[in-house]
Write a protein that binds this DNA or RNA. Sequence first.
RNA 1: GGACAGAUGGCAGAGCUUGGUUGAAUGCACCGGUCUUGAAAACCGGCGAGGGUCAUACCUCCUAGGGUUCGAAUCCCUAUCUGUCCA
Length: 414
Amino acid sequence: MIDLKLLQKDFDNVSAQLKRKGVDEELLADLKAKNEALKVAKMAYEAAQAAQNEMSKLFGQYMREKKDVTELKEKVDANKIKVTELLDVQREAEEALVIRAMAVPNLPDENVPDGEDEESNVELKKVLTPREFSFIPKEHWELAEQNGWIDFERGVKLAKSRFSVINGQGAKLERALINFMLDFNEKRGFNEVSVPQIVNRTALEGTGQLPKFEEDLYKIDGDELYLIPTSEVPLTNLYQDEIIPADELPIKMTAHTACFRKEAGSAGRDVRGIIRQHQFHKVELVSITKPEESDKIFDEMVACASDLLTVLELPHRLVTLCTGDLGFGAAKTVDLEVWLPGQATYREISSVSNTRDFQARRAKIRFKDGKANTLVHTLNGSSLAVGRTMVAIMENFQNEDGTINIPEALKAYM
RNA sequence: GGACAGAUGGCAGAGCUUGGUUGAAUGCACCGGUCUUGAAAACCGGCGAGGGUCAUACCUCCUAGGGUUCGAAUCCCUAUCUGUCCA
């Protein structure tokens, strides 16, 4: 959630920044008005409540002194009606405000480039040069089928489209990658955690997936529970509603989980292969930091993911997302895109974001800063999406006869 | 699945029978100070969270949501979770 106090105080500036992310100024003006309305309603309610408390105390005193309370009771009864009404007004105002506020995305950082969509993303650098092929490189689904690694039909049979089954050496590669990534991250100071892959509504609200993106989530019928779309959700919410001692920061975590997404808005995209699946494995990084060190940790996380790709000998590039491509909760995002020779293009394989205090405000994650309790910064990033890493290995390490070599760094894990 | 018992501040743990001046005793932990060469012990002081205010005042929070009442941590209902026992 954005800082409503800041919106109140510096409307023009906040509005200008959110405009870059396509948020209508009128909506913000409305939000500000609702915030002010709540303040007014609250003051009225609290004044009435104070009077009520005052009279109740007096009531007790009268009883002890055995004084007559009929007159006081009349007054207090009348005031009680007022209190109830004012409370209703306040609640309505609050509800209206929260609905609006929860749907407003985070402010982009000032140095995030402007733009409508991925066309305006800015390449930061390329790492490793794509290999020259003496033959026409195949796409991963062709290789996967040829090697018997992926069974697309049976995945569909078991569930539906965008599900697949991985076999034999493919399955082994997947497992090797997960272990390799976790070990690598751990060496970079990220503590391995194993978390639930089903979470409640509160957790998803804390990290910003709800209420806005309900249609992308798999919900468990009959329970207020959802399959996680990313382990960012359980990892970040581990500290929900907590005040963390300053000396425990930064908290750096890594976890492997399956992720589940309905991919509601991507009909027709990446229908072949395993680029876009409803269920996929991902190794994630999440950091919780003091505000002043979040930029530093952000760079560390980007470096961690990039180095992981480098060690796997996978050519890639780093891209800063423009305002239009930035996610809901992110103030800043760097995507890592891996080179896929079969498609002759770079494709996203990791996305590292700093949400600053946006999630922390929603999830109430603070740290004790001397006497004051201050919101932390939360960051998340993949390192890496496992399925897409497999795709990248298949396509980059393919031989002319369709066989696939294993990157040197992975051999110990196979 | 059935029957009880419970859920209080960082932790432990009173208060609930008999509703009122209890945001909450006490202990531990923690922070500051005195003392000490230093530390420990002892002693003194501070010490939950959110909102609000320049700061007070004031409002809210004793798992959550309802209810009773002038007034609820305390009484009633529901949900969730935990423990114990029975199947």
